[in-house]
């Protein structure tokens, strides 16, 4: 039985962006860095040291898993995949952020003319 995804919340920014980068497809480390930069419009960058440390930690927590690379990719790079549990945690975080976002918009709407 999988643990409750809400027990992992809130996610730190690096974890959130890594899981988000892996939501679409399996990626290796450098590809994750590029995807994070792309979907944040270059406003958030993850260095290799932070990235691989986070990937090790997320692997131990069962949020991501190392998988074989696609055909022709060779064995030079390790590929990572979002697990079912990881996907559930990411979805729970997005829900939490939506609630926060809605509350923030309401507050700002009341304050701002």
């Amino acid at each position: 039985m999988l643990p409750d995804p809400n027990s992992q919340l809130p996610l730190n920014p690096a974890t959130f962006h890594i899981l988000l980068a892996l939501a679409g497809e399996d990626r290796h480390g450098y590809s994750i860095m590029q995807e994070v930069a792309r979907h944040s419009d270059g406003r958030y960058r993850i260095g290799p040291g932070t990235l691989y440390d986070s990937l090790d930690r997320l692997s131990k927590q069962g949020l991501v898993a190392e998988v074989p690379g696609p055909e022709g990719a060779g064995a030079r790079r390790r590929y990572y995949q979002l697990t079912t549990f990881g996907r559930g945690v990411l979805a729970a975080e997005v829900d939490r952020l939506q609630v926060v976002l809605a509350h923030a918009k309401r507050e700002l709407g009341e304050v701002m003319p």
Partner: peptide, 26 residues
């Protein structure tokens, strides 16, 4: 090895940032 490859492929303008990241990681 992958970290070194990323450094080799990186833009020269970002290498100072990569050095800081490696130091923090260490």
């Amino acid at each position: 090895r992958e970290m070194e490859e990323i450094f080799e492929d990186s833009d020269p303008g970002t290498r100072g940032w990569l050095l800081r990241d490696a130091a923090v990681s260490l």
